[in-house]
Design a protein around this nucleic acid. Structure first.
Lengths: 206, 206
DNA sequence: AGTTTGAGTGTACGGACGTGCACTGATCGT
DNA sequence: ACGATCAGTGCACGTCCGTACACTCAAACT
C-alpha cells in the first residue's frame, strides 16, 4: 500500500488549494469558477464537492492557511531583540523575505481582503485585527512604553499594520523589478522610523 | 424636442455608470457581467456596446469619474489654513464627509485597486500616485518644512495617503454603526498627529 | 420632403457555468 | 473473503454568458 485512502484525499485537497492560489494570482475568488479549479487540478467538476461545499468554503480554508504563514512571519519578527536600533531594519527585512516566499498567500489576502465574498472578507479583517493585538502586546516590551495606555498602543499598532500591509502590496506590485523594490523597502524603513519617533514624542506629552 | 439625441445617449450612459456602481457595492468588476448591468439599467444586452467596448472599458470610465470626486475632496482639504493646529482635524473631517457623500466611488476604488482588471488596477495606482505628489507639494506650504528633501516629502506623503486610504476603508466597513465610526475617526486623527510629529522630529535630525 | 444616422430591439448561437444522479473501483473494517 | 465506504467518473439538465446579425424608428442633416 503505497498511499492510504486518507493520504490520497489529502493530496487532492492540497492540489485544489494550490490550484486556487495559482488562479487567484491573476484574478479574485469571486471571479473563480468551480470548473476552472477542477480543470486546473485535473479532476472532474463534481469531485470538487468531496472536499469543499463551495468556492466560498475553499476561500475560508485559504484564509486559514494564509494566516498560518503570516503568523510564522510575526513569530520571526518577535525573535529579534526588542531595541530601537535593530527592530525597524529586521522587521522590514523579515516582511520582505516572507512576501517573496509566501507570495501567493500574501497576494490572496491583499486581494480578497477588499474583494472576496463577505465571509472571507470578514475572516481576513478579523485575523488582521488579531495581528494588531499581538503587535500591541509586543510593543509593551519596547523600552520606554511603560506609561502608554492600551488605547494608545492599539492606535499605534493599527497604524503600523496598515503601513506594513501597504508595503507588502507595493512589493508584490513591483515583482521582478529589483530597483523599484529596493526603493519601496527603503521607504518602508523610513516610515516605520517616523512612526516610532512620532509615537514616542507624542506619548511623552500626554 | 424635449430631449436631443445626444442628451438621451448621455442619460443612458449615466444610467449604465450608476448601475455598475450600484452592482459594484456588492461584488467586484471582475465578477460583473454585461448582462447584469444591462438588466439593471433596463436595456437589452447588446445596447451596452453603444456606450462601452467591454466591462473593462466601463471600469476605466468609473476610475476617471471616481477620481474627479476624490480630487474635489483634496481641493476641499487644501482650502483650510495650513497650520498644525487645524490641519489634522479639518483633513479628517473632510475625508469622512466625502466618504459618506461619495460612498460608491470610494468603495469602487478600494475594491478595484486590489481586484480589478489589470488596466483598472494600474489606472487607480497611477491616480493615487498623483495624489501623493499633490500632497507632497502641499506639505511644502506647512511652516518648518523648508529643509526637507523631495524624497523625504515623498515618503511622508506616501505614508499619509496609505493611512488615509486605510481609514476610508474602515469607515466604509463600519457603515451604519456610528459608534464604531467615531472611534475610527478619533484613531485617524491620532495617527495623523503621530505621523506629523514623527516627521518633524525625524527630519530635524537630518 | 427625403435621406442618413444611430440608440435601442429581438433572436439566435455556442460555450461555460453549477449541480443532480447513477456509476466504478480501490481501500478499508469485519 | 466480503460487504461497506467513498474519492473520483461521466452524463445530462437548465441557466447565464458574450456577441453576431438583422431590425426599427425617431432625430438630425441635406
Amino acid at each position: 500500500m503505497a498511499e492510504s485512502r486518507g493520504e490520497r484525499k489529502e493530496r487532492t485537497r492540497r492540489a485544489i488549494l494550490d490550484a486556487a492560489l495559482r488562479l487567484c494570482e491573476e484574478s479574485s475568488l469571486v471571479a473563480l469558477s468551480l470548473r476552472q479549479v477542477a480543470k486546473e487540478v485535473g479532476i472532474v467538476p463534481t469531485a470538487f464537492y468531496r472536499h469543499f461545499d463551495s468556492i466560498e468554503d475553499l476561500g475560508m480554508a485559504l484564509v486559514d492557511e494564509s494566516f498560518v504563514s503570516l503568523r510564522a512571519m510575526l513569530r520571526d519578527i518577535r525573535q529579534g531583540d526588542p531595541s530601537y536600533a535593530t527592530i525597524v531594519d529586521s522587521s522590514v527585512e523579515v516582511l520582505v523575505d516572507h512576501v517573496h516566499r509566501q507570495r501567493q498567500h500574501f497576494l490572496f489576502i491583499a486581494r480578497e481582503r477588499a474583494a472576496g465574498p463577505p465571509s472571507v472578507r470578514e475572516a481576513i479583517r478579523h485575523e488582521i485585527e488579531l495581528c494588531e493585538r499581538e503587535l500591541a502586546a509586543d510593543l509593551t516590551r519596547l523600552p520606554g512604553t511603560g506609561g502608554w495606555s492600551p488605547e494608545d498602543l492599539r492606535v499605534l499598532a493599527n497604524l503600523m499594520v496598515t503601513s506594513m500591509v501597504g508595503t507588502a502590496e507595493q512589493i508584490m506590485e513591483a515583482a521582478g523589478r529589483p530597483g523599484v523594490e529596493k526603493q519601496i523597502v527603503e521607504t518602508a524603513r523610513t516610515q516605520l522610523r517616523m512612526v516610532l519617533v512620532g509615537a514616542l514624542n507624542w506619548e511623552s506629552r500626554g
